[in-house]
Nucleic acid binder design. Structure first.
Lengths: 106, 106
DNA sequence: TTTACATATTGACAATTCTCGAAATGTGTG
DNA sequence: CACACATTTCGAGAATTGTCAATATGTAAA
């Protein structure tokens, strides 16, 4: 596991993006229940759809979509599509590797 | 000790600034001996003067001075003036607090 | 005090990021 | 198929950042 510290720092240097990452630590506490409208029960793995995040962030859909992409390209989020929705969740592996890097190498 | 995660992330989102922070982990290994020209022996505490950092970064003095200021305002560096020189060194307290934040709160 | 040097500040322009609305794409439903 | 809806992509203008040369400031030496 190796991380791109520059891309991660860029991703975290915006308050909304930082908040999204923090909100996703507690999806149940921060967002309405996800996937209730799906017929088939699928494992969303704590993922939250773009529109829920957009409502909380209070920015335009395109901006939020862009932010989520930035976080994903930095390796901090993972996404999975189910039907019409894309569910984003934290990539704990990268976040752990980041913590390790900051503690040991920075 | 509380840190400004946004300002810290901005400071670290530039390769040269990140490198400066890393270089300063090992001043003796990365820079020429400091303070040799001073008459009075002063404790530089591992600090390195701007021109040494500038030479290694290979950017203009004003850019490097600006970068060092950015790192200092984020709390990642400390500076101390001795004669004509300003010596910059890591602020380990903030860096430790950052590591703690990333590990526990991010 | 004149000079030389280390650093900081200013002003400018290029490059990047922020953010939106509009348009495009993907997907389920009538 | 036609429509509605979730999301992404595109295009654009505003705001911020990167970077330099020129200038200013502070300090030591001659």
């Amino acid at each position: 596991m190796d991380i791109d510290m520059i891309e991660i720092s860029k991703a975290l240097s915006n308050e909304t993006r930082l908040n999204i990452l923090l909100w996703l630590k507690d999806p149940e506490g921060n967002f309405p229940p996800q996937g209730g409208c799906l017929n088939e029960p699928v494992d969303l793995k704590g993922g939250v759809c773009v529109s829920s995040i957009q409502a909380k962030a209070n920015l335009s859909p395109s901006t939020v979509s862009n932010y989520l992409d930035t976080l994903q390209r930095a390796g901090l989020l993972l996404s999975e599509r189910h039907g019409k929705w894309t569910y984003y969740r934290r990539n704990e592996e990268t976040i752990k590797a980041l913590a390790e890097f900051v503690k040991e190498a920075l």
